[in-house]
Simulated assay, not measured.
Amino acid sequence: MTASADLLLFVKSAGVGEQHQYAHSNGHRPMSLMELARNLSEQGLVHLVQKRDRNGFAYIAVRTSQPFYAAAE
């Protein structure tokens, strides 16, 4: 599963306040993943947090109470 798919699955299934590290500053961060995270934040589905650790920064999404509505299949 891709990092983008993992992030979407997290948003769909996580409870309010749950956290998901979707990237790290010392690893590969595809622009599409970072844009997806920003888009989810703009929709009010997650808060984006950078947390400093020994190796750099962890990029974390924190689930909000905004309901997730999937596109009709």
Rank of each mutant, 00 (worst) to 15 (best):
A5N: 11
S65K: 12
A37R: 01
S4N: 13
G56D: 08
G56S: 07
E35Y: 11
F68H: 10
D6Q: 12
A14I: 06
N55W: 10
I60M: 02
S25G: 08
V49Q: 13
S32L: 07
H47V: 13
S4K: 13
L40A: 01
Q19V: 06
K12F: 01
M1S: 10
D6C: 07
L40V: 07
P67H: 03
E73N: 09
N39E: 11
V46K: 05
E42F: 10
Y69F: 04
Y59C: 03
A3Q: 12
V46R: 02
R54I: 08
M34Y: 00
S41G: 14
A72F: 08
L33E: 03
Y69M: 07
A61M: 02
K51M: 10
A58N: 12
E35L: 14
S25C: 11
T64N: 05
E73H: 08
R38L: 13
T64F: 07
S41N: 14
F68A: 07
Q19R: 15
A37Y: 02
I60K: 02
V16M: 01
G27T: 12
H20C: 05
H20V: 04
R52F: 00
V16S: 01
E35H: 13
E73C: 05
A23T: 02
A70W: 06
F68W: 14
R29F: 02
H24T: 12
V62D: 02
M1K: 07
Q66I: 03
F68Y: 15
Q66M: 15
V16P: 05
V49K: 12
A37M: 07
G56Q: 07
G17V: 05
L40F: 04
I60A: 01
A58H: 14
S65P: 04
V46Y: 04
V11W: 04
T64Y: 06
G15E: 11
S65D: 14
S25M: 10
L33S: 06
P67V: 01
M34P: 00
L9I: 09
R38S: 14
L7C: 11
G27I: 04
V11N: 03
G44K: 08
A5G: 04
I60Q: 01
A3V: 06
T64Q: 09
E18S: 08
E42M: 12
G17A: 13
R52T: 11
F57Q: 07
T2C: 01
K12S: 07
A5C: 01
N55Q: 10
G27K: 14
D6E: 11
V46P: 10
Y22F: 15
A72S: 13
S65H: 08
V62P: 03
P67N: 02
V49M: 09
A61L: 03
I60G: 03
L40E: 03
S32I: 11
Q43R: 15
F57D: 03
V49S: 02
A3P: 03
G15K: 15
F57C: 05
D53H: 15
S25L: 08
H28I: 14
A71Y: 05
D53A: 04
V49Y: 04
E18M: 10
Y69H: 10
Y22I: 07
H24S: 11
A14R: 02
H47Y: 08
L9C: 06
R52N: 03
L33K: 01
P30F: 04
L40D: 02
A14D: 09
E73K: 10
H20L: 10
